[in-house]
């Protein structure tokens, strides 16, 4: 009892963060991973919207529920992955000096992260398309900050 209480207290204890840095020591960043994940979010959203049971019998309903659950789980996972990849770019790659060139940098990332959450909360194709557009904007910022203008090519 005491042990469980103490464990609960320790798990909830407010604490500052100490960073076990997880960005690669080579300093390699690429918004491509965010783009692939955002594309997957859009793809799963479209598939979910199009999904319907093949019939009214129990087997069809079960198959529908199973596929629906799997699609939602993938959409959830890819949304979270998109957010993680964007946060790495935002907090690790972009530096304060980039703000002079991209004054809306923080706003862009913040809204993109919010869209990742929105894509988890609902099955909304408009939000998923907005997320992909936000990732494209970040893609452009990223490559222009490196003095390159890599074109936007999607996998799907």
């Amino acid at each position: 009892m005491l042990s469980e209480t103490l464990t609960s207290i320790f798990n909830k204890l407010p604490a500052k963060s100490v960073h076990a840095h997880c960005d690669g020591p080579c300093g390699v960043y690429d918004p491509a991973s965010a783009r692939v994940a955002a594309e997957a979010v859009l793809s799963m959203t479209k598939k979910l919207i199009a999904l319907a049971p093949a019939g009214n019998d129990q087997a069809s309903i079960s198959a529908y529920n199973n596929t629906f659950s799997r699609f939602v789980a993938i959409k959830e996972e890819e949304s979270q992955k998109t957010k993680k990849e964007l946060l790495i770019l935002w907090t690790d790659y972009f530096k304060p000096e980039h703000l002079a060139t991209y004054p809306d940098l923080h706003d862009t990332f913040w809204k993109a992260a919010k869209l990742c959450s929105a894509c988890k909360v609902s099955i909304d194709q408009t939000k998923a398309e907005e997320l992909l557009a936000a990732v494209q904007k970040i893609h452009s910022m990223f490559w222009s900050s490196k003095g390159r203008s890599d074109s936007w090519i999607t996998a799907s």
């Binding site: 204890l13 604490a15 500052k16 963060s17 100490v18 960073h19 076990a20 840095h21 997880c22």
Partner: peptide, 16 residues
């Protein structure tokens, strides 16, 4: 003092 770990560079000993 106490702190909470963020990141995975100490994986093997510390996890997020």
């Amino acid at each position: 003092q106490h702190l909470r770990v963020v990141g995975n560079s100490m994986e093997g000993t510390l996890k997020e």
